[in-house]
Simulated scan of single mutants.
Amino acid sequence: MTTPWGEFVLTRYPEDPHDPLRAWDGADSYPLRHLADTGADLSGAVTVLGDRWGALSTALAAARLEAPAAGPLDQITDSYLTQRATRANLRRAGIDRAAVRLLSSRAAPPERVDVLLVRVPKSLALLEDQLHRLAPALHPGTVVVGTGRTTEIHTSTLRLFEGIVGPTRTTLAERKARLILTTPAGSLVGDGRAGPANPWPARYALPRDVGVMSGRQVTGHAGIFCADRLDLGTRFLLRHLPQRHGHEHVVDLGCGNGVVGTAAALANPGARVTFIDESYAAIASAEATYGQNVGSPAAPAAFVLGDGLSEVPAGSVDLVLNNPPFHSHQATTDTTAWRMFTGSKSALRAGGELWVVGNRHLGYHAKLRRLFGNCEVVAGDPKFVVLRAVKA
């Protein structure tokens, strides 16, 4: 990526030389040019919100290398993988990792922000939550620049900036990207005056047709998939979960709000359940959902923020339950699902089972049959299938 402060070789995480997707796009380079062209003072407290793979944070860290007594440069993200990518890209650029303070979406926000650069996320709820959390740190002189591809910025996006931060306008599009320029003046900015309340997290009751979870409460933090409702794929899986008991170690892989792993814990009271996700919001949601429905079982659950099953010992799992994502930000891809499937095969003991729910058209059965040598359709409807693969 070429920036006003040099060229950088950037990669996504985990690195894959065959991955056709880049670690940056026009929505990363455009705001960096804008900050340089307008002479924005980058020596104060700078916050990057929603960086995808560390492109913005790496470039701004380079821009501040010569700044005397520079304030903190904070990256706020909901993604563990983004943090890993940022560390790798800083190292590749020869920049000390201490140049960027990596904060999660659940961490306490900075107390002051002089420059706020926002990469608009796919989740409007996550943007809403984070703007609410950051608004008290803004002041009338804060430079606020949002950025995204033209297909990612909608009227609802601008309405959030306008209602929470202040007067907002957009720029002309360049290379399929557009900027959002906002002047802090909203009711939440600076002095803590009363304003609209942050509606997150969301809490709701499940319908009455989802097995052991029927009617139970779920918590969803902003940013997770279907944070304020039960998605149809998970609903279908809950209706067809394994009925056999005796699983000693169950993994809810890509746990989201944790409803599937919580159902497995209720159906197998003696089981040890591990919830895994790369999203900080998902882990917080799963902990809340599990805690309010299971309490303190004999075998307490584990909540793991990480890269799939990479930290789970091989041959240690009896059952993996998985509703894999098929998007990476705006790109449609089966890369994440394939890594989840291969990781599951390694983590499962002999005779262990992987249960997957997915859209019928995604063809996961072919991938599972190729990987495990077998795949059974447990249930299906016109849209979804629940698949079962057994490790030989």
Rank of each mutant, 00 (worst) to 15 (best):
M1K: 12
G6I: 13
V9L: 15
L10E: 01
Y13H: 13
D25L: 00
G26V: 06
G26W: 08
A27L: 01
L32V: 03
S43T: 15
V48S: 09
G50S: 05
R52Q: 14
S57H: 06
A61K: 00
A63F: 08
A63D: 10
L65P: 07
A69R: 12
G71K: 04
D74M: 12
Q75P: 00
L81N: 09
L81A: 12
L81H: 13
R84T: 11
N89P: 02
R91T: 14
R92G: 05
A98W: 13
L102H: 11
S105Q: 05
R112G: 06
V113S: 03
V118Q: 04
R119N: 15
V120K: 01
P121I: 09
K122C: 07
K122Q: 10
Q130V: 02
H132M: 00
L134S: 12
A135Q: 07
A137H: 03
P140N: 07
P140R: 13
G148F: 02
T151F: 10
T151L: 13
E152Y: 04
T155E: 15
T155C: 03
T155S: 13
S156E: 15
I164S: 02
P167Y: 14
P184N: 01
L188I: 02
L188Y: 09
G190W: 11
D191M: 10
A194V: 14
G195F: 10
W200E: 00
P201T: 08
P201D: 07
D209V: 01
V210W: 01
I224R: 08
I224D: 05
F225M: 08
R235E: 14
R235Q: 15
R239D: 02
H240A: 07
P242S: 00
Q243D: 12
H245E: 15
G246W: 00
E248W: 07
V250G: 09
C255M: 06
G256L: 06
N257Y: 09
G270T: 04
F275H: 04
D277H: 04
A282H: 03
A284I: 09
E287I: 14
T289P: 12
G291K: 06
V294H: 03
G295C: 05
S296I: 12
A298L: 13
L305P: 12
D307F: 04
G308H: 02
V312G: 08
P313L: 00
L319H: 03
N323A: 10
A331L: 14
T332L: 11
T333Q: 08
T336F: 11
F341C: 08
G358D: 03
G363E: 01
G363N: 11
A366K: 08
L368E: 02
L371A: 10
F372R: 00
V378D: 04
L387V: 00
K391P: 03
K391C: 02
